[in-house]
């Protein structure tokens, strides 16, 4: 299975689309959003931190969902069928996919955090930096499952579009691009229940100097269960027809 993960990670990192959109986009957006305004003071400093977590989350979210695109592509090429006639068990293929996704979410998280520290001069305690990486890394799991579900259920083209759509909607409503505080009240209420907002909240709680609230963790676990069930359903359906 290690070989399978290695193969998939390699393939993802060689994908120019992934490098440009998955890593490049959040990086560029972060630098633009925090430096164009040119304002300084306390508020600007706070925004740099908020946006850093938001953009790292956004990049990780995109990479996690993107796993599904690769999967749908493999399904179209007949590679999933080919794997079924190797001794590699189907369960290990699915788990391997998920684990390779957990590796490919890391570049976006780490690059954005590095820019926050080196370019925007954010100072956090060591435990905060480590906590950020670990929590944002673990927090991508629901999105990986959503992406895998889409990849199994949909055609390659549809999966690409649906995953891109999910990413945009989740990123915007979740307040990863612009703070949810600027939303109208009803949208703020919705935003608080989205997996993406709670995901980023893992990071925001760390930068605020404390651990994530129980509510945040509970909402994320609920989404994890929902997307997990969806992925299992989609996988079973694909196994019958593929």
């Amino acid at each position: 299975m290690i070989d399978y993960i290695r193969l998939e990670v390699r393939r993802t990192l060689r994908d120019k689309g992934f490098v440009v959109f998955g890593i490049g986009m959040p990086v560029v957006m972060y630098l633009l959003l925090t430096n164009l305004a040119g304002s300084s003071g306390k508020e600007a400093e706070a925004w740099k931190v908020t946006a850093m977590v938001g953009m790292a989350s956004y990049g990780a979210l995109g990479a996690a969902l993107g796993t599904g695109n690769g999967l749908a592509e493999d399904k179209k090429l007949g590679w999933l069928r080919q794997l079924r006639i190797t001794p590699l068990s189907p369960a290990r293929v699915v788990v391997g996919r998920g684990l390779s996704a957990s590796v490919t979410v890391l570049p976006a998280i780490i690059v954005v955090l590095l820019l926050g520290a080196l370019v925007n001069g954010i100072h956090l305690a060591a435990w905060q930096w480590i906590g950020l990486v670990v929590l944002l890394w673990l927090g991508t799991t629901p999105f990986t499952l959503l992406g895998l579900g889409n990849g199994y259920r949909l055609s390659a083209q549809a999966a690409g579009m649906v995953n891109a759509g999910c990413m945009m909607v989740l990123a915007i409503i979740g307040g990863l691009w612009f703070p949810a505080a600027a939303f109208p009240g009803w949208l703020q209420e919705i935003s608080r229940w989205t997996p993406s907002n709670r995901f980023a909240d893992l990071g925001w709680s760390v930068t605020a100097g404390h651990g994530p609230s129980a509510g945040t963790v509970l909402v994320l676990v609920a989404w994890l269960a929902a997307f997990g069930a969806y992925a299992v359903y989609a996988y079973r359906r694909a196994a019958r027809t593929a």
Partner: peptide, 27 residues
């Protein structure tokens, strides 16, 4: 299949992109 006694070339399959021939066969 699980014992690794079968190898197959399926109809309409195409090799996956972004790997080299050696990487794919090694895997």
């Amino acid at each position: 299949v699980r014992q690794g006694r079968i190898g197959a070339m399926l109809q309409d399959g195409r090799p996956i992109p972004r790997v080299t021939v050696r990487e794919l066969i090694t895997f």
